[in-house]
């Protein structure tokens, strides 16, 4: 599903964010990406969404080399992965329903289908009754779950998360991680960047640990 081959990323200011990374993520696998802030977690995720291009090596998704992906295909790459961010990037002038529906609108899905899929997605994150509210009326944890609902509404086979529990208290964090685990159970490939080590430790999944741009640990 995802393969990093000798990947390095150097920013134009000379900062080396990632150095010679090699790892493979199999279909349906769930893994965590850990490391201190500045270790390169976000950069790694940005390489996968093609927000950045690697300076050396290859990032392959399903065998496709992302650095060879033409710019006009990037939107289609992003439609096949759900991404959850630390701040959920919701639009305050739209209802919860419209926020979650956005990826479906972009894909040109029919109205009736949108209603069905958005409600299924909201149901999954337990916020079905909030669809008519605006994001500012929700708690941080609820907003984060709306972000997750939006990420999975397209039923993407690949789910990325960048510090999804960064702003949440431990019990909420555990709830969200459980949600990701459920998605993993039904076959979604999941990669979560997080520094919540205690939480990760009880999940019993593969851990990729970054330090100063190097991958120094890969395993359980």
């Amino acid at each position: 599903m995802l393969e990093f081959k000798n990947v390095s990323k150097q920013y134009s200011n000379g900062h080396e964010a990632l150095i010679n990374l090699n790892f493979t993520l199999e279909s349906g696998e769930m893994s965590f990406l850990t490391g201190h802030s500045g270790a390169g977690k976000s950069t790694l995720l940005r390489l996968i969404t093609r927000a950045e291009r690697c300076t050396r090596g290859q990032v392959l998704i399903d065998g496709q080399d992302l650095s060879l992906l033409p710019d006009k295909k990037i939107p289609y790459l992003r439609r096949f992965m759900g991404v959850v961010y630390q701040s959920p990037h919701l639009l305050d002038d739209r209802t919860v329903f419209d926020n979650v529906a956005l990826p479906l609108i972009i894909a040109g899905v029919r109205y009736q289908e949108i209603g069905r899929r958005v409600r299924a997605s909201l149901d999954k994150v337990g916020l079905l009754n909030k669809e008519k509210l605006y994001p500012y009326a929700l708690s941080t944890g609820e907003q984060q779950r709306i972000g997750i609902a939006r990420a999975i509404v397209n039923k993407p086979p690949f789910l990325l998360a960048d510090e999804p529990t960064g702003n949440l208290d431990p019990s909420l964090s555990a709830e969200i991680m459980e949600l990701f685990d459920e998605l993993h159970q039904v076959g979604v490939t999941v990669l979560i960047a997080s520094h919540d080590l205690t939480l990760i430790a009880c999940m019993q999944h593969r851990i990729l640990h970054l330090k100063h741009g190097y991958l120094i640990k890969d395993g359980l």
């Binding site: 599903m1 496709q64 096949f80 992965m81 069905r116």
Partner: peptide, 24 residues
């Protein structure tokens, strides 16, 4: 209604990242 990833439980492959056929 519960959210089901029914299609992905069996086929767990990233659909190709190609631009879909134009649909009027």
């Amino acid at each position: 209604m519960k959210y089901q990833f029914s299609s992905q439980t069996t086929v767990n492959k990233l659909p190709s990242i190609n631009i879909p056929q134009p649909d009027i």
